[in-house]
Amino acid sequence: MSASARRSDAVQNRTRIVEAARAALAESHHIHLNEIAKRAGVGQGTLYRNFPNREALLAEVYRRDVEELVTTASALLAEHEPVEALRHWLDRVIDYAEVKRGVLAALEPAAWQDLVAHSHNPIEGALGHLLNAGKAAGSLRADVDAHGVLLLIAYLSRLDRDEWESTARPLMNVILEGLRRQDADR
């Protein structure tokens, strides 16, 4: 096997491990590395070569979700009108928030505080990009900003895990409807 094929295989293994951990977090806050290795189809040695401990793996899951959430904003605006792009992005925020809750529950406070501190500005920037596009198109209110909307979204974290599925999306729809200009065409 060539060096580039080994590197490609290593990247695929790392990606499968992160995806397996993300799926496990969506099911429960209690994840075990041996279960993640099995789900990813890799040995424990491969898992530990990529992630020396549980915290490193969870931090990578979180970082990748933030990166995807941030990069998705521009892609959605390229495909949809601003309000619809924002709707799709907020839907992804729900999925991100569910994983974030699992990561934060599984990490020590110092570790998750550092992760959250580094993710706040990029997420606020992505949301600001979406809001500015909607304001420029005349479909979103001019008197809101990304910081204020993130404060509203943050309250969703107060939902209990058992009410998340039935309540988070309807509440996010309330936020979206509140962002629309009332005199704009729907």
Rank of each mutant, 00 (worst) to 15 (best):
V61R: 00
L179N: 03
A106C: 07
R16L: 10
H80I: 00
H129D: 06
D183I: 08
H88F: 13
R87S: 13
E27K: 13
R169W: 12
H80C: 00
E79V: 09
P109V: 10
L69E: 02
E79N: 12
D91V: 02
G148N: 11
E165V: 15
I31T: 08
A184T: 02
K38P: 00
A97D: 13
I153D: 02
V174S: 12
V99I: 13
E19V: 12
D183P: 04
D91F: 11
R63W: 05
K100I: 04
A111K: 10
I17A: 11
I94M: 12
R64T: 06
K100V: 08
H29N: 09
N132M: 11
E27S: 14
H120D: 13
H30Y: 11
V18N: 01
L140H: 05
I123F: 00
K100Q: 15
V103F: 02
L69H: 01
E27A: 15
I94A: 15
P109L: 08
D160G: 14
A154L: 13
V11A: 10
L150E: 02
A111V: 11
A168L: 07
E84Q: 13
R22Q: 14
S2W: 00
E108I: 00
R141T: 07
A111W: 06
S8P: 00
G178D: 13
L127H: 03
A20R: 05
A20E: 05
L76Y: 12
M172G: 03
A117V: 05
L77G: 07
A56K: 15
A56P: 07
Y48V: 06
H129T: 12
S119Y: 03
I175T: 05
L115T: 00
K100A: 14
H29D: 11
